[in-house]
Design a protein around this nucleic acid. Structure first.
Lengths: 126, 126
DNA sequence: AGAGTATATGTAGATATTCAAATATAAGGA
DNA sequence: TCCTTATATTTGAATATCTACATATACTCT
């Protein structure tokens, strides 16, 4: 169970054009020019946003002569989804990468920034 | 079944600081100063990023005197998740907002941008 | 009212993102 | 080889995002 960089995955999905592309690709595999026709956008825009989704791991790429055929990578998609569900429904206990944050939270008290600074000298707050 | 703006939701989640905040809040409700201590970040940064998550609907806010107590809005979270699962696992048939894209996809052919432009005069491609 | 504290907000600078236009690359056919 | 076509990449400009610093706001207590 690799620790994923959720922020990066979400960033790839944080653009309306890319969401529209994903939805079109849910219909079927498409070449770049089909995507640009479906969304009525420029070739550059279609190509670049497909590349972003591809690099994030959401798409598969198949070459056929001149055509670049993109399709949803359903396996990867389902993996991401499963992880996401797990993160949100459970409390991510035992996640090493975030143990520090949780450790500091354990010690944290409900005082504001000014008092927090005084508590441990100038090193408590970055 | 309101059509959600997924891009906006994902944008709120597309920042590493906000992911860390969510994970801390999965532990328990926190005030701003607890978040800043847990993540070792500035007060401004904690406050601003909490606000982004709040505005996106992921957090609940409870005021207690001087303190602003933020916590995960689990109902909203689960709604979003349910929607997401639906979108990804099904093909989103019958979604009015995207009917145009799918309609154009139906008519789209596997030719490149140059020929696509000629097919319907200069109006086919934006 | 006045002091102290927790949080929010205005501003500005650095950085990142997005897009179109032009150009480059690569495949297929004459 | 030369031409056409589909896609990728580079460039530059507009815009958005993120952060720290300074300041404002709001609540509590004396």
């Amino acid at each position: 169970m690799a620790m994923r960089n959720f922020a990066k995955l979400f960033k790839a999905l944080s653009d309306e054009t890319r969401i529209r592309i994903l939805k079109v690709l849910l219909e079927r595999e498409c070449c770049v020019c089909e995507v640009m026709q479906a969304l009525d956008i420029s070739q550059t825009r279609a190509s670049r946003n497909l590349a972003v989704l591809y690099e994030a791991g959401f798409l598969k790429l198949r070459k056929d002569g001149l055509w670049s055929l993109y399709s949803i990578d359903r396996d990867t998609m389902n993996e991401h989804l499963a992880d996401l569900v797990q993160v949100v429904t459970k409390a991510l206990k035992g996640n090493k990468a975030l143990e520090q944050d949780r450790e500091r939270l354990r010690k944290a008290v409900r005082v504001g920034p000014s008092r927090a600074e005084k508590m441990h000298g100038e090193k408590t707050i970055a």
